[in-house]
Computed example of a mutant assay.
Amino acid sequence: MTGPSGVRRLILARHGESEANRAAAEADAAGADRIAVPARDADVELSPTGREQAEALGHHLAPGEKATEADASLTPDAIWVSPYVRARQTTRIALDTAGLGLTPRVDERLRDRELGILDALTGRGVRNLHPDEAERRQYLGKFYYRAPGGESWADVALRVRSVLADVDATDAQTVLIVCHDAVISLIRYVCERIEEADLLEDARVNPMPNAAVTVLERVDAATGAEPEWRAVLVNDVTHLDRHDAAVTRHSGESDDTTP
């Protein structure tokens, strides 16, 4: 499985800034071990800034709106969304702003990566409270390390492959997926067949902003060969600038202890 064969365009949007994103930034700035997350991960809501970003995303998806002066509209035919509140709020605000009457399909396979015992810890907190896990993660690497009770990136890749197969079974040509930064990175990993080292290096040096948009398009290969996916837009935030919404960069990987 290398990505859906019927869909011609995937629009991948990260959710807007959440209250947990803000709490994590405050904890890092204070040198704290723990993040004062306001709710369980699935129930964390958007911050006021996140709501503004979702509105900007909606303008971006509206019929007639252009991604660039030369690009076609990004208006989707179908929408799939993570069940987490921050992703569902982003989707609802964006749809209302765009005036789109589509009904999102909520799918638990698009949920954020589960961090297990490292949930709600800063990188400092992981090293201080779970030094053995920090060492094990450093040894195994980010892609294959699984915290007790949590998931590795490889685990998430398995559910990404599964959900893409179901997206493929629809009649839609342009599908919007609203979810989380690690999930979006892994959709690219699956569809574009990106190598593990390249995937992780890109995530490290190019952190995905909140409400950023990545667009994948399917291009026909040689006769008889499977069509290939290519990224035509990656982590784009021009719509945020265009609609006076702040650009925020919060990693969803609060357990990241790698350099």
Rank of each mutant, 00 (worst) to 15 (best):
M1V: 09
M1N: 11
G3I: 02
G3C: 00
G3Y: 02
P4D: 03
S5L: 14
V7K: 03
R8Q: 15
R8S: 15
L10F: 08
L12A: 02
L12K: 08
A13G: 08
E17H: 06
A20W: 12
A30L: 09
G31A: 05
R34V: 14
D41P: 00
P48S: 07
P48G: 11
Q53W: 15
L57Q: 04
H59K: 11
G64A: 13
K66A: 13
T68E: 07
D71E: 10
A72K: 00
S73V: 02
L74R: 13
T75D: 04
P76I: 07
P76F: 06
V81P: 04
S82R: 10
P83H: 09
R86S: 05
Q89T: 13
Q89I: 11
Q89V: 05
I93M: 07
T97P: 08
T103W: 05
T103I: 09
P104G: 15
R105I: 15
R105C: 10
V106F: 01
E108C: 03
R109A: 11
L110N: 14
G116M: 12
L118W: 14
L121S: 11
G123Q: 04
G125N: 14
P131L: 02
D132M: 07
R136I: 08
Q138F: 05
G141Q: 08
F143D: 01
F143P: 02
Y145K: 00
Y145C: 00
Y145T: 04
A147G: 01
G150P: 02
G150I: 09
E151F: 04
A154D: 09
V156L: 00
L158S: 02
L158A: 08
R159W: 04
R159P: 01
V160Q: 05
S162R: 12
L164N: 10
D166L: 11
D166P: 10
D166V: 05
A169T: 13
T170W: 01
D171M: 03
D171F: 05
A172V: 09
A172C: 12
T174F: 12
V175C: 09
I177M: 13
V178R: 13
C179N: 12
A182G: 07
I184C: 04
R188N: 06
Y189K: 07
E195W: 04
E195H: 05
E195T: 03
E196M: 00
A197M: 10
L200G: 07
E201C: 02
E201N: 01
A203G: 06
R204D: 01
R204Q: 12
V205M: 08
N206P: 03
N206W: 05
M208C: 12
V215P: 05
V219W: 03
A222N: 13
T223N: 04
A225L: 15
W229Y: 03
V232P: 08
N235H: 02
N235G: 01
T238E: 13
T238C: 14
L240W: 02
D241Y: 06
D244F: 10
A246D: 14
V247R: 15
T248A: 03
R249E: 08
R249L: 06
H250V: 06
S251H: 11
E253C: 08
E253M: 12
D256G: 13
